[in-house]
Amino acid sequence: MNKYQFICGSGKLDTSVEKSGQGWRVTIGESVYEIDPIHNGLFAIANGERRLFAAGVKHKGIYYIDLGRVQLELTEASDAASIGVADEQHKVKDKVFAPMPGRVVKVLVSVCDEVKERQQLIIVEAMKMENPVSAPAAGKVKAIHFAQGDQVDTESPLVELELP
């Protein structure tokens, strides 16, 4: 029996897995899931009266899971530290990053402005579209590191906030 701990957003889940026929029996708390691999990362899962058709792949430490209607990304707790995701995310709410490399087309706030959660701060143009970058939490603008026309990547923060 293998045991895993997965992180999804702010939640943690402990699972245990054992071989069951052609597939796997996964136990999470009180629930038991029977999962049959089909081929190439596709799985069939008994889900009440229906069978659910899912896809799952691990790539660069992230488990990408497609449940048909819902797609989720998970990490193993043991991997999370090394790839710097999940658990740490709530701590970096004071730094705002671009979702992808692009060009700053507009800066909508000034230093010292009070901003609300989800308020748009900067517009970054990428893939021929204007993409608003919003405040992850309410706070006060401490610093703006880029100006209109600047190229930005995803590594350096666009805006720093002072959280209350």
């Binding site: 699972t15 999962i35 799952g56 449940l67």
Partner: peptide, 15 residues
């Protein structure tokens, strides 16, 4: 859906 996704991830990890 998180539990279901974790179950699939477990199968991926164990495979």
């Amino acid at each position: 859906h998180v539990a279901l996704a974790a179950a699939v991830a477990s199968a991926v990890a164990a495979a």
